[in-house]
Amino acid sequence: MPANKILVVDYEDDIREIAQMSLEEIGGWQVIAANCGAQGIAKAEAEHPDAILLDVMMPEMDGPTTVLKLRERPATKNIPVILLTAKVQAMDRQKFAALGVAAILAKPFDPILLPGQIAAALGWEDQANSASAGN
């Protein structure tokens, strides 16, 4: 079975690199990356990832706006999205949940645990890389 493919969209270069490494090394998934909402939408249309891990606070096009634009496009409207956010206010989280995302994960994240959190949200537990079984 081919590895799941996940698109990581984050404006912060260090966090994007850590997330990518975490999902590749611990999750055993194929990862593609984008540094802004517009690039994320373009890569989602071109690469058809199985899921998108999307930062909330980005300049120009934030995460929620990116979700809405993904939903407008036939090629991307059904791709599950997981939001990643450092915002902790309950009101913000309610607003994000109303977008119909698969999960809302908190920043900072633990790079060892992140793939498991994503797998749990997407029902990918059975497809997880055996490399992460010892965690």
Partner: peptide, 18 residues
Amino acid sequence: SAPQTQLASGMTDIWQRY
């Protein structure tokens, strides 16, 4: 585990660059 060791090494590299 080997993936965790790989991840830790990569994290050090990222920390040094950023």
